[in-house]
Design a protein around this nucleic acid. Structure first.
Ligand code: MG
Length: 224
DNA sequence: GCGACAG
DNA sequence: ATCTTGTCGC
């Protein structure tokens, strides 16, 4: 079960300074390690859409055959504005509600956003991964932090580097004639594991299935 | 001070 | 993210 009471302390900062301090504290608990693929059976995709001041969170669970196993959604009033570098404070609350509602336990979760490719290594994937103690990976549609060369051929992954040439993730061209995606480990996963699992989850589209489906449902669920 | 800037 | 139809390209 999820300890909501404790989690709220990490999701309701009243100032940006406080939010930044929370990120620095959580970052101390950041841990990266390889994924044990033989133990992976359920993969989650996470995304959030908005209807006025309401956030609609979606978590989609699929198996290794890319078949949908479970889908949950939750709504919640938005309380934090969108500020680059602080997305988790806006989307994590409703996302965590979704995970509490989930019947199955995913072995790893892919988020629509950054993992450690963040100024303080605490993108939304890392943030939520630490709070729920769940292996996570960030799948972003653009760069927030770091520099990288543009991959030229499909299947090519270039290194996304931060301060002092530190590798934070990959810029990966998953499909022709599309913008490359930014892949970065979030929590309890690493660079190689993240790239490897994302490749196994591509199904003809730019985004890996879990994230693509989560985004699809987050839009589709507007109206019921 | 100026520019960058996930969703 | 959201406001929004058709249209060009693979
Ligand atoms: Mg999103």
């Amino acid at each position: 079960m999820v300890d909501v009471k404790t989690l709220s302390d990490y999701m309701e900062p009243k100032t940006l300074e406080e939010a930044e301090q929370i990120q620095k504290e959580l970052a101390k608990r950041l841990a990266l390690c390889p994924l044990d693929f033989s133990q992976i059976s359920l993969i989650a995709g996470v995304d959030v859409s908005y209807i006025d001041d309401q956030a609609l969170g979606i978590v989609v669970l699929i198996n290794k055959e890319l078949e949908i196993v479970e889908v949950v959604s939750e709504r919640m009033k938005v309380t934090f504005p969108y500020i680059p570098g602080f997305l988790a404070f806006r989307e994590a609350p409703v996302i965590i509600k979704c995970f509490e509602k989930l019947k199955n336990r995913p072995d790893v979760a892919l988020f629509d956003g950054q993992g450690i490719a963040h100024p303080r290594k605490l993108g939304i994937a890392s943030h939520v991964g630490i709070l729920l103690d769940l292996p996570t990976i960030g799948i972003a549609k653009s760069v927030l932090y770091g520099k990288c060369q543009k991959p030229s051929t499909v299947g090519q992954a270039t290194l996304l580097k931060g301060q002092d040439e530190e590798v934070l993730g990959y810029c990966y061209l998953s499909k022709k004639n599309t913008k490359p995606i930014i892949i970065s480990p979030g929590y309890k996963t690493d660079l190689d594991s993240s790239l490897h699992i994302v490749k196994s989850l591509l199904n003809g589209f730019k985004l890996p299935e879990p994230v693509r489906l989560a985004h699809l449902y987050s839009q589709k669920f507007k109206g019921s």
